[in-house]
């Protein structure tokens, strides 16, 4: 790390994997604020958000070496956080479980095509089409597309049966396709 320029997220993460406490502090300062803001949009319980943020950074500390260097570090961190939130919702706080979960299913750190499209919402039709979806459909799309959760995880987060998640996701996609056609 050269001192004359702010290190990139990936460099910070590499240093964290080496056990560098300063880099960890810097990573926290970079990412904790937006994480807390974004968590506010997923849960109204600020204690839960605090807990999720703390556990997320603990996982980041422990698993920094597992980051593959693809995609944004922010996306990787969010992938950890949203699953912590799902776990909290499930009432399963055991960290070991989480570690197992992370081990089995790698958090996708490549932004999906849909995400990429969303970054540049310049097309008025897309904006209009998205906003026309019912809140329920928006929530399902948000959990599965933006947060990258599986059907089962999305079901836990939204408090609806997995079957409902599936049908709503299909309806949302169909409606979007129709509107954009």
């Amino acid at each position: 790390m050269r001192p004359d320029r702010a290190p990139s997220d990936a460099e910070l993460l590499a240093a964290v994997a080496e056990g560098d406490s300063d880099a960890f502090g810097a990573l926290y300062d970079q990412h904790a604020p937006w994480l807390l803001v974004r968590l506010r949009r997923r849960t109204a319980d600020s204690d839960a958000a605090d807990q999720v943020a703390q556990e997320t950074f603990l996982v980041v500390w422990r698993d920094a070496g597992r980051f593959r260097g693809q995609g944004a570090v922010g996306a990787w961190i969010w992938g950890i956080a949203i699953r912590r939130l799902v776990d909290l919702q499930r009432g399963r706080v055991a960290q070991e479980r989480l570690a197992g979960l992370l081990g089995r299913r790698r958090v996708s750190d490549v932004a999906s095509a849909e995400e990429q499209a969303l970054v540049r919402l310049e097309h008025r039709e897309v904006i209009r089409a998205l906003n026309r979806l019912s809140p329920e459909l928006q929530a399902v799309l948000q959990a599965t597309v933006l947060d990258g959760l599986s059907t089962r995880e999305a079901a836990v987060l939204l408090g609806i049966p997995p079957g409902t998640v599936k049908t709503r996701a299909m309806r949302a996609r169909a409606q979007l396709r129709q509107d954009l056609a």
Partner: peptide, 11 residues
């Protein structure tokens, strides 16, 4: 040694 305090001493 602030930055390396969590490293194992043997490292």
């Amino acid at each position: 040694l602030d930055a390396v305090r969590r490293k194992k001493i043997k490292a």
